[in-house]
Simulated assay, not measured.
Amino acid sequence: MDFKLILKKINNILTAEENKIFEAWHSESKVHRDYFNKVKNNYSKGIDIVDIQKGWADVSIKINKKKKGYLSYKYAAAVVLLFSTILTWYWNTENSETTPTLEPTVVHKKQIHIGSDKATLTLEDGSEILLKKGESFETDKASSNGEQLVYNKSRVPEKSTSKNILTIPKGGQFFLVLNDGTKVWVNSGTQIKYPVAFTTDKTREIELVYGEAYFDVSPSTEHNGSHFIVKTEGQKIEVLGTEFNIKAYDDDDHISTTLVEGKVLVKNGDDSKNLTPGHQSKIDRSTNKLVVSAVDVYNEISWKDGLFSFKNQSLEDIMKVLSRWYNVDVAFENKSIKKLTFNGIFRKNLKLDQILKIIQNTNEVNYEIKEKTITMK
């Protein structure tokens, strides 16, 4: 069942056709009816926050007006943000049976903090600068207010090779504006290496050493046709001017590139594939095979907008994401629950306890917090 239909039913704005779909699902089983009542009850707690019917109408108008280009993900994002305002969460395990509520074990000795803006900047001479919210930094080449790092626009001779490295720890994130105007949202546990200034009329090339970053690339038309290349672990992404996300964490079994707008060419050794908006390339680390498939774009990039969006994701993958943002270790006492799949939307400014309790309330899993280690049971 599409979660949007459930919310529309609660607000009495289903079309006749949508109502048929909902009623068929609702009458199918007691599990479905219990789930609907659970969502309805939680929804009622935030009902006065926004006008849902107006919100849906506004989004529909925007979608209908947009006749060209792949920008529908932005309106999908508007829907996600709208409902995340009303509901702190929704968590869907339709096929689970109701079981007695489990009680988590919590042993707090070290405080678990919500992730924040912070990074380490390594300069050309090897010196390191800590960047964090509330503290400023400035040189003749770049400046930071503790939330973003912006490089001055200038051209340098071809022989210049000065590079900086920006490292984001677990529990951090940062926003970077490169010398050519390219914007980069850098996720937790990520390192990126780039020129302090790009050389005139030469290919602009940077390296995503590991981790995840979202790129809004300054068009080649503004740089005398100069292409932009992102290298990461044998993969090379060639772009002319576009928006895309690369995820290349060391503990993931694949490297993924998701195209939002424009076009890119993904090269992996002798293999190469063009991406179109709404598609994702994946390189399997064990086989080195490159495949392309359609994806839910916003589910892949919501992290940069302050949300965790989990769509049919395994508990194992969800806990990887949470471990990076909250800087905790995760262990599974019950290995069989790793592959349980869930759907959910969370704001990244929630405390970890809140998210874990929501997971626990599915009656599928329990957890234990001991210092900074989370054990899933």
Rank of each mutant, 00 (worst) to 15 (best):
G262C: 04
P195L: 12
Q235L: 11
E261D: 01
G262I: 05
G278N: 02
I255Y: 01
V184L: 07
E261I: 00
D201Y: 13
A248F: 00
I192C: 12
D250E: 13
D253F: 08
V264R: 06
I229H: 14
Y194I: 13
V266T: 04
N187S: 11
T276S: 13
E233W: 10
T182H: 12
F244S: 01
L208W: 06
P195W: 00
L259S: 00
G189L: 10
K202D: 10
D252L: 10
F244L: 05
K263A: 12
I246A: 04
Q191I: 06
V266I: 15
P195A: 08
K183D: 09
D201T: 09
V230D: 00
T199D: 08
P219R: 08
E207L: 00
D271K: 15
V239Q: 09
G241W: 01
T203W: 06
F215C: 04
K267D: 10
D250V: 06
L259P: 00
V266Y: 03
Y210R: 12
E238M: 07
K193F: 05
V209N: 12
K247Q: 14
D201L: 15
D253P: 04
H254F: 14
N268S: 04
T190Q: 04
D250M: 14
G269Y: 02
E233R: 12
Y214I: 08
D252I: 09
N224H: 14
H223P: 11
G262P: 01
T242C: 03
V184S: 03
D216V: 13
T276H: 01
S188A: 15
V209C: 05
E205H: 07
K202C: 07
G211V: 11
K267E: 13
D252E: 13
